[in-house]
Amino acid sequence: MITAGIDVGSVTTKCVLFDGKKVLGKALTQTKADPNLAAEFVYKKALEENKISKEKISFIVSTGYGRRAIDYGNTSVTEIMANATGAYWVGCPKGEIKTIIDLGGQDSKVIALEKGGHIRNFVMNDKCSAGTGRFLENMANVLGVSLEELGSFSLKSKNPIAINSTCTVFAESEIISLISKRAKKEDIIAGLHISISKKIVHMARELGVREPVFFDGGGSKNIGIKKALENALGVEIYVPENSQFIIALGAAIVAFKLATKQQK
């Protein structure tokens, strides 16, 4: 039995195909203005690239902020549920995952799990772009650096400069004034990463951080943030491969569980 999970995020849409034991394929595209179109596109792409026909898919679960835009899905779950399911399945070498940090394009969240992968509690920041991927994108723009380089740049810094503003708009002004004072790029970037991690740490403290900690979402590809979080929380953070697809994978796993139940 093959199931599909489609994560319609605010910036990117992802699709993952799952057969109960392993990931069969995945695909990603930019959501842009039409979530429905993006979902359809990414679903078709995943099927084509892995030579699986539509009829073979028994169950589709959508998730993410645009989860209701899809009309051909069987059901939808929140990205919190999907993230918890996906992260738990992927696991980490240290043992059962207890905390998940998700740094998405327009929101960030921390999920606390208890034994068995059940959600104990969660905290979301979706009101303000501080501590999200959008924040990083804007700053990368201002600094003339690509998003992918940000992480490695920050590691070069020996003297991070504290960025006081958490608001994207005000932080931009602060960075521009720092650049004019000839501050080193890597120091500014390191300061930015610390700023983001502060916002996430604030959320995490509300829940109580327990190890092992799992880091996923688009922002998890940035090694600078991973290091900044590790420093701030004092714990080791595990970033899985293909961390951006964990939520879609979680949706696919939920689809598989539901399909199995349906069969009985």
């Binding site: 779950v77 929140t78 979301m124």
Partner: peptide
């Protein structure tokens, strides 16, 4: 989203 996650 939050309330649905709570329900789940």
């Amino acid at each position: 989203t939050r309330i649905e996650a709570f329900k789940e």
